[in-house]
Nucleic acid binder design. Structure first.
Lengths: 339, 339
DNA sequence: CTGAAAGCGCTAACAT
DNA sequence: ATGTTAGCGCTTTCAG
């Protein structure tokens, strides 16, 4: 899409200078309050700007606004909305421009967006990985020392900056809580195993079991894809096949917890009377549904990410740098003591 | 934030031209596949680009990518997430850049974002109004014929483009459904009355009552602010004060429906046994919670909005232009027949 | 087919 | 205090 297709001829700074009988430099000075300009000249320029309805623009190629690309796996996941609200809140403080890229959990989209963002001349990227394979573009960016911060994924990559939360600890807490409530058969609904969050949460789950001498049973693990729908379907299957006995479900995110909840209700179980459920993320709905869950500080992850990115862009810090925030168990009413 | 603060010196097109022993114009031609370039020259240029790790950029001031500002009242509202997903899906087809602005339901933020967007030289704006007063900047934009499309608000403004859905019809259907189920005392939780959606939905509610000879009782109207929390609080108050008798609640959005639901449960009512509830929007959670609701085609509103905006930007159409999509009642399990 | 040069809208260095 | 001019990184005439 080229400018020439666009129907919009507007008055520019030179026009203002001309009709105000001064130079373009002076107009620029007035607008930027840079060096002092004689009051009556400034006055005149200001008036001319109004008169011509000139739209001030900071589009010089020399001095640019910070442009940040925000790559989101799935805009419809409420957890990411919270995270975005953290990013946008801080962006205002720096007058930074946030370019939103929704990948819809699709690797092709991700690749497309990386390419386009780079072509747009962005200054940095906030990246939430979701795919199995790290996009080759990403390796390239890291090599080039391009400012990029990873979210929610520790990864084996060297020399990257990331902010995440302590998923291991959060998961461990959740499982321990269930065990203390008397549960020993705990179904775990994992996200895709290649995501560090999923993996780490599963590890936390295992540690919780191990610490209470409960044998880990792989049959009790379901692999979902973060979506509510898939979790629902998998749990239905699990129940129909009578795969394994369980008294509690720990889902790797709230969306999947709700999918499981729905499936269980449909199969005649009542929550928490027959089955206890814990989720992860603490999306807004979880409070409504009284879902006990592990809260991730999504907003803070967002604010930390952009702050870190800006430091990177300004060259104030160099990778690697990691920020790990704390997750915390929020006890509500979806779990029952069965001792 | 100025470019000079930014730590990033990169190879540019001139560098490529130099080491490929050709001119910058030729490099540009190769990149844009514009005029034909001799195969071996093209080859050489391509190799040089790789060798130097040159990042292709479309940042010329002459030819620009379409930049669209997306002003969202509240990114945390799942309904807007759906809408955004519609916008971003289409944006890809045009390689358009979407600049996300989250207003957090705050007029100052809205003003800030309008100002900044304009300064960034965007080509058009997708605007979801939420404030009582239309920002003065907006009048100015309309006067200037700046490409802007309004969402979810019909408004009294002349010569604007908007896309919305038939809220009147949707609301009317919902109320009629409740009435047919035997409900005559229907509490209505409105959004802010100055929003056309709120207003129109209230009108639909009134029409539904009128058609069945049920007298409209203002005492049964609660005014919320779109948030779940406020609806919750207002319903609690309503019940405690025994303001009016009701057997059903019709909320102007799902978030508020859930707020009401929460309040009712807390006060000992069971849904739908004692009270029936209908919402509006059909956010993803409503299906989980089995909330009967009026579905707004958020995704389609988003796609239509950006399509319309691009037409506006390209000068293919002129305001006014309105697109009105259809809302439809989704019957689930939050309502009960009480006849 | 290709290079030189003008120019997009603005800022900043340099004169005066 | 202000005007002139070079340039940001690229595209696009215009010559040749």
């Amino acid at each position: 899409m080229k400018r020439k297709d666009i129907n919009h001829k507007s008055v520019n700074m030179q026009d203002v200078a001309d009709t105000a009988s001064t130079s373009i430099a002076t107009v620029s000075r007035v607008i930027n309050n840079s060096t002092s300009v004689k009051p009556h000249v400034r006055q005149k320029v200001l008036e001319t700007i109004k008169a011509l309805n000139y739209q001030i623009k900071f589009t010089s190629l020399r001095t640019k606004v910070i442009k940040i690309g925000l790559l989101i796996p799935d805009i419809k996941n409420p957890y990411f909305s919270i995270l975005i609200s953290g990013v946008t809140a801080v962006s205002k403080l720096y007058d930074a421009e946030i370019i939103l890229c929704n990948c819809d959990n699709n690797v092709e989209n991700e690749r497309y967006h990386f390419k386009k963002l780079l072509e747009l001349g962005i200054d940095g990227i906030i990246y939430i990985p979701f795919a199995k394979e790290i996009n080759s573009i990403v390796y390239d960016l890291i090599d080039r020392k391009f400012p990029i911060v990873f979210l929610d994924r520790k990864s084996d990559l060297k020399n990257i900056c990331f902010v995440t939360s302590n998923n291991f600890e959060g998961s461990y807490q959740a499982v321990t809580y269930l065990i203390n409530l008397g549960h020993r058969d705990i179904m775990f609904i994992s996200g895709p195993s290649y995501l560090s969050t999923s993996f780490t949460r599963l590890e936390g789950y295992k540690k919780g079991l191990a610490e209470h001498k409960i044998k880990f049973n792989p049959a009790k693990i379901i692999y979902g894809d973060t979506y509510q729908k898939t979790a629902y379907e998998e749990v239905i299957k699990f129940i129909e096949k009578k795969t394994a006995h369980f008294t509690a479900v720990f889902a790797s995110n709230d969306l999947m917890a709700f999918g499981a909840w729905q499936a269980l209700e449909e199969k005649g179980y009542r929550i928490p009377d027959n089955i206890s459920i814990i989720g992860y993320d603490d999306i807004p709905f979880s409070s409504f549904a009284s879902l006990t869950t592990v809260a991730q500080p999504g907003y803070e992850i967002g604010t930390n990410a952009i702050l870190l990115l800006i430091d990177l862009i300004k060259g104030r810090i160099k990778p690697p740098k990691k920020i790990i925030l704390r997750d915390s168990l929020i006890i509500r009413k979806s779990c029952k003591n069965i001792t």
